[in-house]
Amino acid sequence: MTITQETVMKPEERSFYYQLFCHYYRGDLLQLTRKQWKQVVQIIKEYQYTSLLDEVAQSLQVLEEVTERNIQTFEYDYNRLFVGPNKLLASPFESSYRNYEGNVLQQETLNVRNFYRYVGLQVANEGQIPDDHIQFELEFILHVLSQPTIEDHRQIYKMFLEKHLLQWGFKHCELILQNSQNPITHAMAVILKEFLQLEGGNKDVS
C-alpha cells in the first residue's frame, strides 16, 4: 500500500523512533528479555504507519518471535558491529564513513559538534567519544524536535538531518544488513533504514 508522507511522519512518531534508536545505540536494549522485546514491538505497533511497510512489518514479527538463543547472541553481534574489540563491521561514527581516510574525530565531527553547540549542548566528556556517534546524533535530533522554543528548530532539524545523519545512515544500515548474524540487529537495521527513508522523503517538518 502507498502511504503518504504526511500521514506517516507525525512529530510524535518521529520523536519516538529517535528515542528508540538512541536507546538502542546507547546499549539500553541489550538486556531485554523475549517478553520485553514483545512489549517493544507492541509500543512500535502503536504507531501503525511504519509498521504498515512490508519490510518493517516482517522485522517486527522477527522481533516478536526472537528465541532465547537470539537474545543470548544479540549482544555479541551488536558488539561485533558497533563496539569491538574487533574491527567494526558497521562503525557507528559518521566521520569514519565520510572522510577519505575513514578516521574518527575529523572535520565532520567538528561540524556535528557545532550543531550541538549552537543549541547549547555538547557531548558529556567531550573528546572522549567522537561527537558523531550515532547515539549522539539521534539524541540531538530528539532534543531539537522536543524543544520548539529553540529558534529555527525546524531548520536545524532539517539541516542536521540532511547534512549529517542521512549522509551516512543508509551506508551504516547497509553494512549492518551485510554483516549481521543475529535477527535482532538485522531487524533493527531494517526498521532504522525504513525510518531514515521516510525521514529523507519528509519535506515538511511540521
Partner: peptide, 16 residues
C-alpha cells in the same frame, strides 16, 4: 520498560 529516564535527562553518556 527500559527502567531508564528519558533520553536527554543529562545522562553521563549523552548530551549535556
Amino acid at each position: 520498560l527500559l527502567g531508564l529516564g528519558a533520553i536527554g535527562s543529562k545522562a553521563t553518556n549523552g548530551l549535556v
